[in-house]
């Protein structure tokens, strides 16, 4: 039976629930509109070898991690050893070096333990970053074999995300034809 005096209590409980959920969300995480869509087109020089081009076509044919990084990005350093680990586990990673000086980027890779990337697109102007909706480096996208964006993680990767979300998704997508 609903008592009149219960109403404020119910309203209070509803507010409490609303705030509990609402304040628990991280406002820095913006859902990406790219998910489920084809990866944005780009055509950039390769960081190590500027004669070579890196294009969105190269995301197709295998499941790819597309990782946005820069030498000035401090939290990129935190995930760098995890990317190396992912490379050892057989994942195919393409990098996007975002608004960086070439020399700084190359130093960064040697300084922090190696180059986990199959290839690195060099986005000096940051235009390709805008196409991908990059707003907080590092960002990591999972692209399926057909070149469709399936997942995005904003901010540095960490063990839980890798083991519970990233790897299971990549293994599942690898089964798809």
């Amino acid at each position: 039976m609903m008592n009149r005096h219960m109403i404020p209590l119910v309203v209070f409980a509803a507010l409490l629930l609303l705030f509990w959920v609402g304040l628990g969300l991280n406002p820095k995480i913006i859902p990406s509109p790219l998910i489920g869509k084809e990866a944005p087109k780009f055509d950039l020089p390769e960081l190590h070898n500027p004669q070579k081009r890196v294009t969105n076509e190269m995301l197709k044919g295998q499941v790819t991690l597309f990782n946005v990084f820069a030498s000035w990005c401090v939290s990129c350093r935190a995930e760098h050893h995890l990317l190396l680990d992912l490379q050892h586990r057989g994942l195919y990673i393409i990098g996007l070096n975002y608004k960086d000086e070439k020399r700084d980027a190359l130093n960064y890779l040697t300084q922090f333990g190696g180059d986990p990337y199959a290839m690195i697109a060099y986005d000096y102007e940051g235009d390709v970053g805008i196409e991908w909706g990059v707003y907080g480096t590092p960002e990591t996208f999972v692209i399926d074999k057909k070149g469709i964006v399936r997942y995005k993680h904003t901010g540095p990767l960490y063990r839980e995300v890798i083991e519970n979300e990233l790897i299971p998704l990549v293994r599942k997508l690898e089964q798809e034809s």
């Binding site: 913006i30 859902p31 707003y135």
Partner: peptide, 8 residues
């Protein structure tokens, strides 16, 4: 802008 960054 919305196509890249979402409605936010």
């Amino acid at each position: 802008m919305v196509d890249r960054y979402g409605e936010f």
